[in-house]
Nucleic acid binder design. Structure first.
Lengths: 212, 212
DNA sequence: CGCGGGTTTGATGATGCTCAAGCCCGGTGG
DNA sequence: CCACCGGGCTTGAGCATCATCAAACCCGCG
């Protein structure tokens, strides 16, 4: 057996550990430069996990045990209101993080669902792993604070937008802030994210309805 | 001169230090019990400040240098959109905190304004003071993390509410979640907070318009 | 081929906005 | 002390936006 073949076999046996961390390390390095040694330490705390389309990472009523980093595929988090309508809180593409911060921190049951919109490769971090990791690589404190900040800003912007803009303006803003989303996310989910009905979104996409 | 007398004199000279910290310490103790010694340390980092009605704590374009704790009175933060309409992000009553987290953390110019809706007594904390305080009283890390969490949850709830509820439902929710607000906040400001026009709010408050 | 989910299209109605006028009340100056 | 002013609240009429309900359509898939 040649070495190349052996390597192939090896990769096949523990495929996750080898190739799944590239994006994570790249993203971290963008904000907080870390050494190769720190990278190596960092890797040890994550749990690689694959999720197939429509599978759940978190279901309403359960405690959110992980924060998830998306290496491949995409996730969404959403609530279901009293009328049974879904409200998408967030999409998470490659390179994004997703969890229910509140449930994760307090260990109380979540009001959100998280599921896969495409087949996914995720890196999961438990609370104890996160804490240990921050002790071993304190630089990452800064990285996680930046993440939290960014999510706070994003959601504030979205709130203002939802209070002051029309459906069409909100849609354009979404396309602008997240190019390519229309190619990957079904339309009725974008509608759910924007807080409008699928019919309305369909209509305002149709140029025939353009105002004079 | 006895020590007690000296203390009295000392307190007399800087009167703020005497009565202005009660609510702050009480609020902290509700979530994170601290010793009298820690309380004393804690006090030294805050800058007491009085603000008269309509005065600004932060103006759009400036860097947010402080987080403010409200001992008396009330504050609001808001943005002005391209059409010139104000959008109130948050009210802060006695015992609440307010700042622009983003500008405070990054030292970039803020997009928000913060001003006083009533004469106020505030306790201000600068970034260096905060950091030093957290070193001296590490228990407070937890307290501040809880604050951040709570604001994240609150704003998420508000977003879902703004996407899924009618003007009336949102108004009722506001009254329920913040009793007494109608007695202290002018109506057009509640409208601004809810993202509706003053006229609409006025109408849905009038029982004559009640649906059958 | 037929089924089913997602999207489109149409008709109708409710909700909330805009503009405009009137009202109430507290504050100011004569 | 009163008249006047102005800000905030109310009321009204008309209109734009968007939701609802229903039907048709499109297309991938078993």
């Amino acid at each position: 057996m040649k070495i190349a073949e052996a390597l192939q076999l090896f990769l096949w046996l523990i495929p996750d550990a080898l190739y799944m961390f590239e994006l994570l390390l790249q993203k971290i390095n963008e904000k907080v430069p870390i050494t190769p040694e720190e990278s190596a330490v960092c890797k040890t705390f994550f749990i690689p996990k694959k999720l197939r389309k429509k599978q759940y990472l978190l279901q309403e009523g359960d405690v959110c045990k992980y924060v998830a980093f998306v290496e491949k595929g995409m996730l969404r988090s959403y609530t279901v209101d009293d009328k049974g309508t879904e409200h998408i809180m967030q999409f998470a593409f490659e390179g994004w993080w997703l969890s229910d911060q509140f449930s994760f921190l307090t260990a109380e049951p979540s009001v959100y669902n998280i599921d896969a919109l495409e087949d996914c490769e995720l890196l999961l971090l438990t609370k104890p792993a996160e804490e240990e990791m921050l002790v071993r690589v304190p630089k990452l404190e800064r990285y996680f604070r930046l993440l939290l900040q960014n999510s706070l800003i994003a959601i504030q912007r979205r709130l203002v937008s939802s209070l002051s803009h029309t459906a069409e303006e909100k849609y354009r803003q979404l396309l602008a802030s997240c190019p390519g989303i229309a190619q990957r996310v079904p339309q009725h989910m974008m509608a759910s994210y924007l807080g409008i009905t699928p019919e309305t979104l369909s209509r305002l996409r149709n140029p025939k309805n353009r105002k004079v």
